[in-house]
C-alpha cells in the first residue's frame, strides 16, 4: 500500500504504521482485532480514525504506545515514529518514548486519574521523571499547565474526586501536553461528557494544537465531530481500514458502502428532516481487500457493486443495525 505518501500537513510523517496486525490470542481461538492496517500522520496533522465499537480503533492507539496487555499480541507490521522503530524499543527507551514523544488522552478521564494523589502530584511526577526538574520548578510548570487549560492553579492541591468531569478531562489534556509531545492520541476524549462540555474540550484541543503544533490521532465514533476537526481520516470496519481520504472528501463523497452508512446515520442539524439510512439488517463485509486509490489521495477498499445495492436501505426497512439514531429516524 502507498497510503503513507499522502500525509497532509508536511512531507515528513511523524508516525508511520505499516501492515499492523494485532491479535487477541485465546486458548481455543484467537481474534484479529487489527488486520494489516497502514496509515501515516504528518507533522501538525489531525488524523481521524472512525468506526463502530469493537472495530479496533482503541487497540491501534494502545499499540502505538505499546500499552497492550495479554492476551493481545502484535502479530505483524511495523510502527515507526520519527524514524525510530517503536516495536523494537527496549523497556527503558520505551519509557522515555512514552509521554515525551507520544502522549494520550484516554476514553474515561473519570478513571484515568489516581484517586489518592492530588492533581499537582500527578502532573509533577511527569516533570520529575522525564525532565528531571526539581519539585518546585515542576510545581510552577504544573500551575502554568493548568492555566493553559483554564483551570485555577489552586486546583493543584485538589484530588480528582473534587473536580467536575469536564475539569478532570481538561486536567488530563493538560498532562498530555506537559512535555510538548509531537503526537497526541485522543481516544474518544469526550465520550463520557455532555455536549456542551464536549464542545469546550474540543475547542481547547484545537487551540492547544494551534499553539503547540503537535500532530493528533483522533479516535471517535462521532462522525460529525471528526469531520469538523480532522484534516484527513480513515474509516475502520472489523479491524480493516475501508476508506481513507481528506475529511472533506469523505464528508461530501463517501465511497465505501460502510462509510456511506456511517455518514448516513447522523442527522443534519439544519435543513429539512430526512430519513436516516444505515447499514441494512445483517449486512456484513468479509475479506475486505487492500485499499486502492480512486481519486488522488482518496483510497477505498474495493467492494462488489452488489454490496452498495443491498447495503443501502431506507430507514423504513432498517433494523437496529448501527445506530440508535436510526430508530428515531424511523419513528418520525
Amino acid at each position: 500500500m502507498t497510503v503513507s505518501q499522502v500525509s497532509f500537513g508536511s512531507h515528513e510523517p511523524v508516525l508511520e504504521v505499516k501492515d499492523l496486525t494485532v491479535k487477541y490470542v485465546g486458548d481455543t481461538r484467537s481474534t484479529t482485532a487489527v488486520d494489516r492496517v497502514s496509515f501515516s500522520i504528518g507533522t501538525g496533522e489531525i488524523f481521524g480514525l472512525a468506526g463502530e465499537s469493537g472495530c479496533g480503533k482503541s487497540t491501534i492507539a494502545n499499540t502505538i504506545m505499546r500499552l497492550l496487555k495479554d492476551p493481545a499480541k502484535i502479530a505483524g507490521g511495523s510502527i515507526r515514529f520519527g524514524g525510530k522503530d517503536v516495536l523494537a524499543m527496549g523497556p527503558e527507551e520505551l519509557r522515555r518514548f512514552r509521554w515525551q514523544d507520544v502522549a494520550m488522552v484516554f476514553q474515561s478521564a473519570m478513571n484515568s486519574l489516581n484517586p489518592v494523589l492530588t492533581i499537582g502530584e500527578q502532573i509533577t511526577d511527569i516533570y520529575t521523571t522525564h525532565a528531571g526538574y526539581s519539585r518546585k520548578e515542576s510545581l510552577r510548570r504544573a500551575a502554568e499547565l493548568l492555566e493553559l487549560v483554564r483551570i485555577d492553579p489552586v486546583r493543584l492541591k485538589s484530588y480528582p474526586h473534587q473536580l467536575s468531569g469536564g475539569m478532570r478531562q481538561r486536567a488530563v489534556i493538560a498532562m498530555a501536553v506537559a512535555l510538548k509531545p509531537s503526537l497526541l492520541i485522543l481516544d474518544e476524549p469526550t465520550t463520557a461528557l455532555d455536549v456542551v462540555v464536549q464542545q469546550e474540550i474540543m475547542a481547547q484541543i484545537k487551540e492547544l494544537q494551534h499553539e503547540l503544533g503537535f500532530s493528533v490521532l483522533f479516535i471517535t465514533h462521532d462522525m460529525s465531530l471528526m469531520v469538523e476537526l480532522s484534516h484527513r481520516m480513515a474509516v475502520m470496519y472489523g479491524g480493516r481500514i475501508v476508506e481513507t481520504a481528506k475529511a472533506a472528501d469523505i464528508h461530501t463523497a463517501p465511497q465505501h458502502p460502510y462509510t456511506q452508512a456511517l455518514m448516513g446515520a447522523f442527522p443534519p442539524l439544519t435543513g429539512p428532516r430526512i430519513p436516516l439510512t444505515g447499514l441494512a439488517d445483517g449486512v456484513k463485509f468479509h475479506n475486505i481487500p487492500d485499499l486502492a486509490e480512486v481519486t488522488p489521495g482518496h483510497f477505498v477498499a474495493p467492494f462488489a457493486a452488489t454490496d452498495t445495492a443491498s447495503a443501502h436501505n431506507s430507514a423504513a426497512a432498517c433494523g437496529p443495525a448501527t445506530s440508535p439514531a436510526l430508530l428515531e429516524g424511523a419513528a418520525r
Binding site: R98, A103, S112, L113, N114, I126, T129
Partner: peptide, 20 residues
C-alpha cells in the same frame, strides 16, 4: 485506567507499582 495512564506517562515501574 489510572494504572494504564501511569504507564503511558512513562513513569518508572517502581513508582507505578507503589504510588499508583
Amino acid at each position: 485506567d489510572y494504572i494504564t495512564m501511569a504507564e503511558a506517562k512513562g513513569l518508572k515501574p517502581g513508582r507505578i507499582m507503589f504510588r499508583y
